[in-house]
Amino acid sequence: MEASNWTTLHPSTFILLGIPGLEAAHVWISIPFCSIYILSLLGNGFLLAVIKTEPSLHEPMYLFLCMLALADLVVSTTTLPKTLCIFWFTDNVIHTNACLAQIFLIHSVTCMEFGFMLAMAFDRYVAICNPLRHSAILTNWAVAKIGLVIVMRGAIFLCPHPFLLKRLPYCRTHDISHTYCEFMALVKLACEDTTVMSAYSLAVSVFTGGLDFILIVLSYILILRAVFRLPTKEARHKSLSTCSAHVITMLVFYTPATFTYFSHRFGHIAPHVHILIANIYLLFPPMMNPIIYGVRNPGIRQRALHILGIKID
């Protein structure tokens, strides 16, 4: 009887319901989802190839961009294949360990993405506010150490999540109203007090994403102050253009991320709307980042056109 109770309260599998209320439209929703995923794979893969094959792009900004592209690939690949299985084959079952691994990867790698964007903001700050020391401060070794610290921060802070969720009893239901496993979605299924766990998750979110965002904003305030002190309009325009792609990337990433986070914890919106936005948050930035940098960055754009055999007069 005790073993049966343990199995019931600690299931070996969960059921992902997809998008409740829109089950009839799952196949149609899968078309843009699959298209975005394919574009993300192609775009980020091509971006990595462009930077790898062009020695002039082996600079801190582009190295951080490579890290961001790899993180984008991990996040989208962690969620989309299973989501498409739900939409196409009604394959809703996910093993508990796979579910917990998905939660860890989504949240830890997203935390890393915040860090990579902060590193890119720091690079732009040094390049514009202290250009003569840029190459001395951001050496390849320094970039590697910054990247390692960001990865370790995400892994260490988010490592407790799957272990905390593993020990929770789930006596309400084993059905998750989502297309992928999400920390708060599982917490809401538990039948014991999760206040401390939710507080830890909130603290991690504030300390990583929130703090990184504040530091990014501060970096750009200092950058703008330095730019508007430049003597000529051309110099100001050139300096601002080097930051534009990064600013657009941050808006694309932070806007749905912020909405998803607050709607899940404090909002009262329709479940299908929340789930759709949560998927956009994981899918849209990985697709858009290569496009933004390909269009806005002359070095990447010219190398990409050269690889594609397109000549621009």
Rank of each mutant, 00 (worst) to 15 (best):
V206S: 05
K166N: 07
M287C: 15
V295K: 06
L224I: 07
I214E: 04
A203D: 08
T13I: 05
A98D: 10
I106H: 07
L65T: 00
M197K: 05
T173M: 10
C34P: 08
P11N: 13
G21F: 12
I106N: 06
F33A: 13
G21S: 04
I103V: 15
A25Q: 14
P20H: 06
T194S: 13
R296Y: 14
H10I: 07
I150K: 04
F116C: 04
I248A: 08
L251A: 15
A136F: 09
I248C: 06
K233Q: 13
R133F: 12
L165T: 00
F89I: 00
L17P: 00
T8L: 14
S241G: 06
P271D: 11
A257L: 11
L189M: 10
L73P: 01
Y254E: 09
L84F: 14
L42D: 05
A245T: 03
F228N: 15
F87I: 01
E54M: 03
S198T: 14
E59Q: 13
L16N: 02
D123W: 01
G294F: 07
F259E: 03
T173W: 07
T53I: 09
S35V: 13
V143Q: 02
A24W: 04
I137S: 01
A257I: 06
A270Q: 12
V151T: 12
Y254F: 15
L305Y: 11
R236M: 11
L41G: 04
R167F: 07
I216P: 03
M288A: 10
L211S: 10
K188W: 09
T232Y: 07
C243E: 06
Y261H: 12
M197Y: 12
T173A: 12
T13C: 08
T260L: 11
S76I: 10
H58K: 12
F284L: 15
R172P: 03
C99Q: 04
F157Y: 08
N44R: 00
G209Y: 01
L222W: 11
R265G: 08
I248L: 14
A185T: 08
M120L: 09
L48S: 01
C111F: 11
I38L: 15
G209W: 00
A278P: 01
T96I: 01
L42F: 15
S108C: 05
